[in-house]
Design a binder for these strands. Sequence first.
RNA 1: GGGCGUGUAGCUCAGGUGGUUAGAGCGUUACGUUGACAUCGUAAAGGUCAGAGGUUCGAGUCCUCUUACGCCCACCA
Length: 870
Amino acid sequence: MTTYKIVKKLDDKYNASEIEKRCIDFWEKDKTYQFDKTALRENTYVVDTPPPTVSGSLHIGHIMSYTQTDVTVRYQRMKGKSIFYPIGWDDNGLPTERRVQNYFNITCNPDLAYDPNFHPIHNPKGDEKRREVSRKNFIEACEVLTKEDEKAFEDVFRRIGYSYDWSLKYTTISPESIRISQESFLDLAEKGMVYSAESPTMWDVTLQSAVAQAEIEDRKIDGFFHEIRFEVEGESDYLKIATTRPEFLPACIAVVAHPNDVRYQKYFGKKAIVPLFDIPVPIIPSEHAEMDKGTGIMMVCTFGDAADVGFWRGSGLPIKQILGMDGRILKSEDERYPYESLNSEKATLYYKQITGLKVKDARIKIVDLLRESGDLLSNPIAIEHPVKFYEKGTLPLEFITNRQWFIKILDYKKELIEAGQKIKWFPEYMQKRYETWVEGLNQEWCISRQRFFGVPFPIWYKLDKKGEINYKEPIFARKEQLPVDPMSDVPNGYTEDMRGCPDGFIGEKDIMDTWATSSVTPQIALAHAPKGHHLSLPFDVRPQAHDIIRTWAFYTIMKALANEGKIPWKEAHISGFVLDPERKKMSKSKGNVMTPMPLLEEYSSDAVRYWGARAKLGIDLIFKKEVMDQGKKLTIKLFNAARFVYTMVQNAGLEKTIDYRKNITHPLDKSWISKLKETVESSVKAFEINDSSFALEITEKCFWDFCDNYLEIVKGRAYVKEGNSAVSCLMWSIDTFCKLFAPFLPFITEEIYQTRPWGIEEKSIHKMLFPSSAEYEDFSEDISLYEKTVSLVEMVRKKKAEEKHSLRTPVVALTISGNQKTLELLKKAIKDIENVLNVKENSIVFEPHSEELFITNCVLGENEKNLTNN
RNA sequence: GGGCGUGUAGCUCAGGUGGUUAGAGCGUUACGUUGACAUCGUAAAGGUCAGAGGUUCGAGUCCUCUUACGCCCACCA
């Protein structure tokens, strides 16, 4: 067995960093947290740990939620369960990609061949042009950089004592993870749930990639209503059409009004003329238009917003694409306005003035032109309106038509909601959030991204005789081929020299949405488990924060359901955020993030864990250092209380026998054990409903009661030879508190447990069984003796405080009033009471006159200070 | 517009099946240290439990409404 340390004795002074070092070393050598694959499933607790994104650093929000999970896991371990608690690093995705580009001054060109001689070097200056490298080289560069971050993350997680089995560590960009992600995709392809299509896609022009519904957010931005004059063919009057996006005039395909709108009914079937460009477009009745909004009549362009896309889908009208992938107005090949116009010359003249401009500039230009031509009916009206953004983007999303891969989800809403109902959510109301999200889904999951650092699609396309791509019949990789990179691997039946040639093939350049990989974390974790394990879905728990219910939780449920027909986990534990003192979410851009390492140094790991563990699941927490102070104080108090009790145990010559608890015979001690029993019972109850913060709260309360009252009251008895009952009771209490606190404060409790005065080697406390109230049953007695004694002590203390005397001031005369029963009870602890109050032996008078317990006469003697002063 | 959550001491938060006088930490004030602990102890002050109504012998807790704040979703001419 691994030795905890050579000198098995508590230090004289509490030293957090020494204790932390000893414990980390001990747990490592002892393999305390190793997963035991031989345990039965019902004796195993399986966790789908969130792999943190390794770009930048961990912040205090991680610490709160990861601590809450570790506490739960440690409790389960102390229930005797084998724990499958892996840790992974999410190094796959955009944040890493951006960071790597800047750090090495490189950029990825997936068309390039792999260069085995390329080694990335730190080059932040970026004086020279960014070097283009192949996708494989780029991924290698990502791995170089993420390794450093992962080291720093691991240091923090080890230091704070998260009980991962580090041998289960995975990364989301590893070949194994890529394999699993691709396999999941191929499985869905077989099931007919994936397809590629060319259609209007939400497009981030800065990122130059498609994004999915889950990654977009609304932001209120300033804009203008422009009221524009549209003439009607064959009519003398004109239409007044309001739009926020006049730059899309040349892409206008129709004008629509509500079918019941009497103002416009007479125009239906006629054509409106788009100003400047003289484009005749049909005036169509459509429910898309609302009578009471604006002028009640609107123009439809391809595409100004999601409503335009919706209308276009049902209209059968052709798309007029004027916006390029770079967010600029397209130049047509012959530099003419490329669509139908009554006056092509004029249309071209105007169109030329906006080609190549960014949408915002094009808008300004068009407004100027409308003003000049007299088609702007009023000055633009300033408004604030919600616009869709990519959550990490800076410019509004555009709808641009291109080819993307999708996973069908809209047909499965019912099943997805039912799966959500089978999962127990903590707190419960988080299930509602999941349901709201699923109900509100209106797009299939677009999983292709025009990026580089991620999981490639296991797909190639055939080229025909002319070298044109056949998208209709993609070549899927075979499962035994995985993982594949279609840009360097070759599909079955082809050779590398056929790549890009007529009658040959070409690889799919795009990569998958990072969530396509994150959504299979349970499967990835299992792939990293020791051979011969018997685990499968569902896991026991998924801990995560509430902001990613619509992404991580949703996609994981969706994949588990589609791939395996199962729910991924039985429970979801949803944590909140840490807010700064102004109640703002901590974020890098606001500069208000706190990193954990300095706090661990300042307060100790146990104290920081205390802070995280006190927060309730799901609640957003305002960061308060004072709570860490409280944790630090508690830790030191535990240390000192244990040190004192251990000295008593040594003095009493108490031996470790199974039966030392049998020494506990004194009524007051047994009464205290009742109190302890109650706390154990409530603590277990709280843990069982995943309310560990409550368990901590009541344990702490009981512990301070122990220190302030019980320990003080029996101190005198513990010093004398016949004090074995008290000493045994103190010892058992310390043992109990250590176990109750162990999930929260793993370091100090291990230190105290390992330095027990028996001198016998012990297993880690974290492998011991959590206390159960039944163990205390036989040693407990009516709790009221303890409670009455404490209230009596408090009364006398208060009297001494009121008279500004020291607590050691002798009491010359004391009369206690109360009912007969109470007084008889108190007499059982008379020696302890005399001692703690410093009353002369046999001088307490009992008066059985009143119902309530109180002191009718309390005369204090002179204390030493007063004597010297006089 | 729909939904969810929150409102308790100066601050940050607990208050479980409704049950004495509503709790903790920090902060404030007073006192205290010779035998675990000054990274300390004992005590005090501090509350119309957001507001109104209802159920009940009894409501911080249950119901209805109002109000303030936060979040999620939707709308986006």
